[in-house]
């Protein structure tokens, strides 16, 4: 959906025209619950490795197309990962290698 008001960011949608509210719900998958848990744990006062503002800044800087195409917790894990990279908690190289390892493990498991 294109942004009808160029002065507004894509996530800032209050009051804009939109369709009927579909009463959709789903049971959250374990990976989604884990994303939620990562955000809570990383933001905890004992760690302070992410703030809600950092999460939102990274979600809200997604392009309109990505924002609408990604599911809710996809946007979250994308943003959490960006913050951890920006803060130097993890590196792009480490992340790439870990994803490769996980994919290889998954393929083996069939």
């Amino acid at each position: 959906m294109t942004n009808p008001d160029p002065l507004r960011a894509h996530h800032d949608m209050g009051g804009l025209p939109a369709g009927a509210v579909e009463p959709t719900e789903h049971d959250y998958a374990l990976w989604e619950k884990r994303v939620d848990a990562l955000m809570v744990l990383l933001g905890h006062k004992d760690r302070r490795l992410i703030t809600v503002d950092e999460l939102r800044r990274n979600i809200e800087s997604l392009g309109p197309e990505a924002y609408d195409k990604m599911s809710y917790y996809e946007r979250w894990i994308y943003a959490i990962t960006q913050v951890l990279l920006q803060r130097g908690v993890i590196t792009v190289d480490e992340l790439g290698r870990k994803i490769e390892a996980i994919r290889a493990r998954e393929t083996q498991r069939g």
Binding site: I77, L95, I102
Partner: peptide, 9 residues
Amino acid sequence: YRAMEAAVR
């Protein structure tokens, strides 16, 4: 993104 969650965790 599920792979990304597992990797980050």
